[in-house]
Structure formats: structure tokens, C-alpha cells
Amino acid sequence: MDATIVQAVLSGALIGMIYALIAAGLSLIFGLMEIVNFAHGEFLMLAMFSSFWMWELWRLDPLASLPITAALMFGVGVLTNRLLVMRVLNAPALAQIFATFGLGLFLRASAQYLWTADFRAIQDPFLSRVAGGRIALGRDVFIGVPQLVAAVIAAVAFALLGLLIRRTRLGLALQAVAEDRSTAALMGIPAGRMFDLGWGIAAACVGIAGAVLASFYYIYPSVGVTFALLAYIIVALGGFGSITGALIAGIMVGLVEIVAPLLLGIPPAYKYALVFTLYLLVVLVRPQGLFGRY
């Protein structure tokens, strides 16, 4: 096969893994309380800035500060739930959309106010120095080490998330609340605390994604916008509330974004148009997404 195609497939799958992790958090929140977090991209941006500042101030590599970033974001998620989301839980769907949308705008504007709109990057992070920053997989096919490690970490986080939800008592409780809030409450599961936990885990997932992206991506206040847009598409494509759907749709989107322009001979500038078209085509056939229940 053509080397550029192989290269594109690899790059697409790697970035797709990160998309999937971002989308998983979104899907988890929706599955739990049927709310779409329109501030998800800004959570990602906060995580990237958290990595950036720990590097800038204390020379902590994004990889080393990843647990701190994930913990911080867990807190951001819980706070968001307590201060904002619980207050609109019984409001009309429109009010819910705008509550989280307002939060996103607030966070993005605050980041620009505090840290300016400049593009920043972490110079020479640890991963870019490992093996010269890239691994050759044959003639003309290379994988960037930061991208590879990012995808591996995302895959591990994804697997842990799956285990947590499917194999632990806590996960069972989360599933019970997602299934039927009031019946779960009658069984003694505190729904409020499960919502806190869901938001915490979702934000921590996006925190991990932000931390691994910080090693090789520019960091600026509106960096989350495109990622979030893709995450909404991925969640809707995979089916709202389905974690497996998020994984498969995430990788699909990563592949389409990078491979499709190459195969169809369309300029890469149109890559998002292709992704959105793919989404529309899929929901035409399956309005509930690939793995959605309803």
C-alpha cells in the first residue's frame, strides 16, 4: 500500500483515540443525566493550560503533571455539577443547553482575559526527546512519539473507564442512576453523589486528554472549540450515552478526517466538512447513532 495512506491511517487512528477519550466524558454525563455539556471544549482548554502552567512555573513535564491535571479537572467537574448543573436539572432542555454554553463562554473569555489569546506551546517536552521524537516504521512511515504515547495513555484511560463502569460496584451504581434515577434512590443509591462522580470522571477524562495533547499541540483559549465540536459529533454518531460508541466513532472520525481527503483527492481544508457529512449520512440511516438505545 502507498506509504502516505499508511501514514494517514496511523495518524488518524492515533488522534481518533484522543477524540474518543474526550467524547467518552461527554457521553458519560449524557447517559447519567441527559445533559449535553457544551463547556466540554473549555474543560479541555483548562486542562491544557494546567499542563502548560505547571511546565512554565515548575518545569513539570506534561506527562509528570498528568495526575495533578486529572485531579484538578475532577474537581472542576464536581464544582460544575454542584454550582450549575444541579440548579438546571429540572429546567427546560433549552435552559440546560444555555447553562453549560454560558459556562463555556465564561471559561474561554476568562482564559483570554487572564492569559491573553496568544498561542503557546511547551518547548521540548520529554516525549519529543525520546528516540528523537519519532519512530520509523519502514520507509517514509513515521509515528511521532508524543502522538503514540498520547494515544496509548488515552487507550489505557478508556479501558479503565470501561472497567470502572462495567466491573465495579461504583460503576453499577452509576448505571443504576442512569437507568432510573428515582428507583436507584429507593435502592439507597445517592443520585446527587453519583452525578458529582459522573461529572468528576468526565472532566478527569477530558483532563487526561488535555494533558497528553499539551505535549504536541498549541495551547490557546479557544483551542477546545474544534475538539468539542468533534466530540459532539462523535457522541451523536456513536449514540448518546454509549461509551463503546464513543470509542468506535472517535476512531472513525480521526480516520475520516485524515484519510478521506487523501483518498477522495479533496484539499485537507475540507476535512471537517467531510466529518460532518459522514455524521449526517450515518444519522440519516440510524437517527439514534451507531450504538444509541433511543
Binding site: 450549575l84 440548579r87 438546571v88 429546567a91 427546560p92 433549552l94 435552559a95 440546560q96 444555555f98 447553562a99 454554553f101 454560558g102 459556562l103 463555556g104 463562554l105 465564561f106 471559561l107 474561554r108 473569555a109 476568562s110 483570554q112 482575559y113 489569546a117 483559549p221
Partner: peptide, 23 residues
């Protein structure tokens, strides 16, 4: 000067409306 402070207020306002006057 592109400080985006107006958008900070704007975002806050949207949240306040959503929470206190959703109708």
C-alpha cells in the same frame, strides 16, 4: 484591547438567566 472581559460578563449573564429565569 481584545481582553474579552465583556464576554466574561456575557457568559456569566447567560448562566444566571438559565438558572434563575429559565422560562
Amino acid at each position: 484591547r481584545g481582553t474579552a472581559f465583556d464576554l466574561v460578563i456575557y457568559g456569566l449573564l447567560i448562566m444566571v438567566i438559565a438558572v434563575f429565569q429559565p422560562a
